Computed example of a mutant assay.
Amino acid sequence: MRKDSRLSRALHVLVHLNDADKPVTSETIAEMLSTNPVVVRRMLALLRDQEYVHSTKGHNGGWVLAKPLGSITLLDIHNAFGDSSLFTVGLTDEHTNCPIEIAVNNALKEVMDEAEKLMLKRFGDIHLSVLEEAFR
């Protein structure tokens, strides 16, 4: 299973956009993240839909922060990406008939659900301005 790194990448980009004195192109962001500009545009389009960033086309166009970092939480950004799991630990086979595998899967699911619930609660308490302060 491939790890979903959109949350950490988006946080990285948002802190950079906060420091930018002009719009930043998808190409520049892609280079910074070692990825493709299309990946950047898809990720930032989800954040634009939630009005965390704006984009402008053409010469001198690019992405800008639409809200102060202090008004955005980690939970806001996580939620902008839809129903993605925080964990990449997966159940080996959800449709097994093996009683041992069923017991293992049930134990893992319960622990991961509990941990995710706690993490999402904390995400709601952490504003992106804290990341920017730690960066300074």
Results as ranks from 00 to 15, higher is better:
residue 14 L to K: 05
residue 34 S to N: 14
residue 73 T to H: 10
residue 35 T to Q: 02
residue 28 T to W: 10
residue 9 R to C: 05
residue 62 G to Y: 01
residue 111 V to G: 04
residue 132 E to D: 14
residue 83 D to K: 14
residue 93 D to M: 07
residue 32 M to K: 13
residue 116 E to N: 04
residue 107 A to S: 06
residue 36 N to Q: 12
residue 3 K to G: 11
residue 88 T to G: 06
residue 22 K to C: 06
residue 100 I to K: 10
residue 33 L to W: 05
residue 63 W to Q: 03
residue 128 L to T: 02
residue 132 E to K: 13
residue 86 L to N: 03
residue 17 L to C: 05
residue 38 V to T: 12
residue 70 G to Q: 10
residue 95 H to I: 00
residue 27 E to V: 08
residue 61 G to L: 04
residue 122 R to V: 10
residue 43 M to K: 02
residue 135 F to I: 07
residue 33 L to H: 05
residue 98 C to F: 10
residue 113 D to W: 06
residue 72 I to D: 02
residue 24 V to G: 01
residue 58 G to Y: 11
residue 105 N to T: 15
residue 107 A to V: 02
residue 132 E to M: 08
residue 5 S to C: 07
residue 16 H to I: 08
residue 93 D to F: 07
residue 1 M to F: 14
residue 98 C to I: 12
residue 125 D to T: 09
residue 131 L to F: 15
residue 11 L to F: 06
residue 123 F to P: 02
residue 121 K to H: 15
residue 121 K to E: 15
residue 50 Q to K: 13
residue 57 K to I: 06
residue 34 S to R: 11
residue 93 D to Y: 08
residue 40 V to D: 01
residue 134 A to S: 08
residue 66 A to T: 00
residue 40 V to E: 01
residue 75 L to F: 07
residue 100 I to P: 02
residue 19 D to G: 11
residue 64 V to G: 01
residue 122 R to N: 07
residue 12 H to P: 02
residue 131 L to C: 03
residue 40 V to P: 00
residue 93 D to T: 09
residue 105 N to L: 07
residue 74 L to M: 12
residue 65 L to V: 09
residue 51 E to L: 11
residue 111 V to F: 08
residue 91 L to K: 15
residue 15 V to A: 08
residue 122 R to E: 14
residue 67 K to V: 05
residue 33 L to V: 03
residue 82 G to L: 04
residue 68 P to A: 11
residue 85 S to P: 08
residue 80 A to C: 14
residue 7 L to R: 02
residue 118 L to M: 09
residue 24 V to M: 01
residue 80 A to D: 01
residue 133 E to D: 11
residue 20 A to T: 02
residue 103 A to C: 09
residue 47 L to R: 00
residue 121 K to I: 07
residue 39 V to A: 08
residue 126 I to F: 05
residue 61 G to Y: 04
residue 96 T to A: 05
residue 88 T to Q: 10
residue 19 D to Q: 14
residue 91 L to W: 02
residue 66 A to Y: 02
residue 71 S to H: 10
residue 65 L to F: 08
residue 121 K to M: 12
residue 116 E to H: 03
residue 64 V to C: 06
residue 50 Q to Y: 07
residue 18 N to R: 09
residue 58 G to N: 08
residue 9 R to A: 11
residue 110 E to F: 10
residue 58 G to V: 10
residue 66 A to N: 03
residue 129 S to P: 05
residue 44 L to H: 03
residue 112 M to S: 15
residue 28 T to F: 07
residue 114 E to F: 14
residue 23 P to L: 03
